[in-house]
């Protein structure tokens, strides 16, 4: 039952940030939407590791936590003509 509440919140967060990424009039809006989705997906992966009861699955969440910002950084540096 408690899992249903958790996953509902996560699903609402993913839906809202993906909606911002889809609607966003300018590209920075879309980038921020996708970045928010990345962050919520990290939380989803941690929750699912607890749900499946497999601690080693946390490594995948760690990869996203360490590398998730590089794509956003690349787009941001492009927008300020720094690449």
């Amino acid at each position: 039952m408690i899992w249903l509440v958790f996953f509902s919140f996560i699903a609402a967060g993913i839906a809202l940030s993906l909606a911002r990424a889809g609607l966003g009039p300018t590209t920075p809006d879309r980038v921020v939407g996708v970045d928010g989705t990345v962050t919520i997906t990290i939380a989803l992966m941690v929750l699912l590791a607890s749900f499946f009861d497999r601690q080693i699955y946390l490594d995948v969440a760690l990869v996203y936590a360490v590398l998730g910002f590089i794509g956003v950084l690349a787009v941001a540096r492009y927008l300020e003509r720094g690449v």
Partner: peptide, 10 residues
Amino acid sequence: AAIGAGLTTA
């Protein structure tokens, strides 16, 4: 995750 998060986008 490792390929898609940073490398391909960049």
